[in-house]
Simulated assay, not measured.
Amino acid sequence: MPLDPQIKPILERIRALSIAASPQELRRQVEEQSRLLTAAVQEPIAETRDVHIPVSGGSIRARVYFPKKAAGLPAVLYYHGGGFVFGSIETHDHICRRLSRLSDSVVVSVDYRLAPEYKFPTAVEDAYAALKWVADRADELGVDPDRIAVAGDSAGGNLAAVVSILDRNSGEKLVKKQVLIYPVVNMTGVPTASLVEFGVAETTSLPIELMVWFGRQYLKRPEEAYDFKASPLLADLGGLPPALVVTAEYDPLRDEGELYAYKMKASGSRAVAVRFAGMVHGFVSFYPFVDAGREALDLAAASIRSGLQPS
């Protein structure tokens, strides 16, 4: 279908970010834009708590969202998007508040370390350390360690997928559900139809040159793209927790996200891919102004809630 009229003015804002001269300037622009989003919406929840999670070489911040004062709630680790270069717990505060409220879960938003200051696989290691931290402190957080999900958008979707694979490989199987919102799952540069069609289109919010730039910031060497921890599409996808994969019609990453869901199913795992017509990469962040963004986030919350029902 045609580009949704609600996303057209948003698209101009998103495309303006791609001309940033440096990672630091890009981060400044995104943080400034996110303040406008946060001011545009109110998502009441019981409490938020900022914490520090120990990781190799130091600690990272996280923000914990409590939808109500109760024990034994499910937990969701949320990894923000931003090409592994920008984004923070602040830029995704409005998303995590709504996700916590609607999924009735304690959401832990993880401020993993960013490239180029911290190259691959630092973000992966931070993301996995956060999972272990939540599981180890379930009593302290008031969550059920047997009901943990991971979720993320774009680069954060990559981290959620990789954490699920690492968790399966460890044999612990802490993760019971994954929600991947227009995830990056293949950094090798092998083209798909959607990448060819929308990577250079005027309607794209994620031009190919920006994706290439993100890869150069994140990876130390091009061959690292073939590591499953960078490109989870290359991993064995059997025995993984059920996944909801959200894609956007005009997104260069659309086909690789849908292929990921298909490969999961072909490997014996459960997965559902839902494509949002007329939408571009990043549309969920703009849910205060875009109906489809709100619908996608509400779907994610419903999927988490149903996927983490008490046994």
Rank of each mutant, 00 (worst) to 15 (best):
V76N: 04
A71S: 15
F276R: 04
E25C: 09
K8S: 00
I304K: 06
S88K: 11
F198K: 02
G171A: 10
R49T: 01
I7H: 01
G189S: 14
P67R: 07
P67E: 06
A277F: 06
T122Y: 06
V41D: 01
F120R: 08
A127H: 02
A161Q: 01
S103P: 04
A115Q: 13
V134E: 03
D111L: 12
L297C: 09
V41F: 07
Y250K: 00
A273Q: 06
P54S: 12
I19H: 13
Y226P: 00
L308E: 01
N186D: 15
V108Q: 03
I304W: 05
T192R: 05
P183E: 12
A138F: 07
G257Q: 08
K220E: 14
E90W: 10
V184L: 14
M187I: 15
A155K: 10
R63Y: 09
E202N: 12
A248D: 02
G278Q: 02
P232H: 00
G142L: 07
A46G: 06
K263I: 08
V212T: 11
A302G: 10
L233V: 12
L259G: 01
S154N: 09
Q42N: 15
G81T: 06
V107T: 07
L73D: 01
S164M: 06
A230N: 02
V51H: 06
